[in-house]
């Protein structure tokens, strides 16, 4: 439905997205995955630092701050903000399994 692909740094506060791809490689990629950020994961923008960078995202109930350069390496599919995030995370992983 919403096939508008973009990167994580494009999201505004309160908006959510589902990760479609990670464009970074090596240890950066592994670190993100360790934190539970991998294709299918939903993220919500929660806080922005008073100086504009980094931004904190709600991921699997944790609050993780990423610098903009990192967020640019996470491709996402934006989703409408009013959908509860909890449902999304279960849904996305469920589809992943099937």
């Amino acid at each position: 439905m919403y096939k508008m692909s973009s990167t994580l740094d494009q999201l505004q506060r309160g908006q959510s997205g589902i990760v479609t791809n990670l464009t970074c490689t090596g240890s950066n990629r592994r670190r993100l995955m360790d934190l539970g950020i991998l294709p299918g994961t939903s993220l919500t923008v929660e806080l922005t630092s008073p100086l504009g960078d980094p931004t904190a995202y709600r991921v699997r109930e944790s609050l993780i701050a990423l610098r903009r350069s990192q967020a640019q390496e996470i491709e996402i599919e934006p989703i409408t903000a009013d959908t509860p995030e909890i449902d999304l995370s279960t849904e996305s992983t469920e589809t992943e399994r099937s």
């Binding site: 360790d34 934190l35 539970g36 991921v59 699997r60 109930e61 944790s62 995370s89």
Partner: peptide, 8 residues
């Protein structure tokens, strides 16, 4: 409170 991430 963060079971999923911790289960990893």
């Amino acid at each position: 409170t963060r079971l999923e991430r911790n289960l990893n």
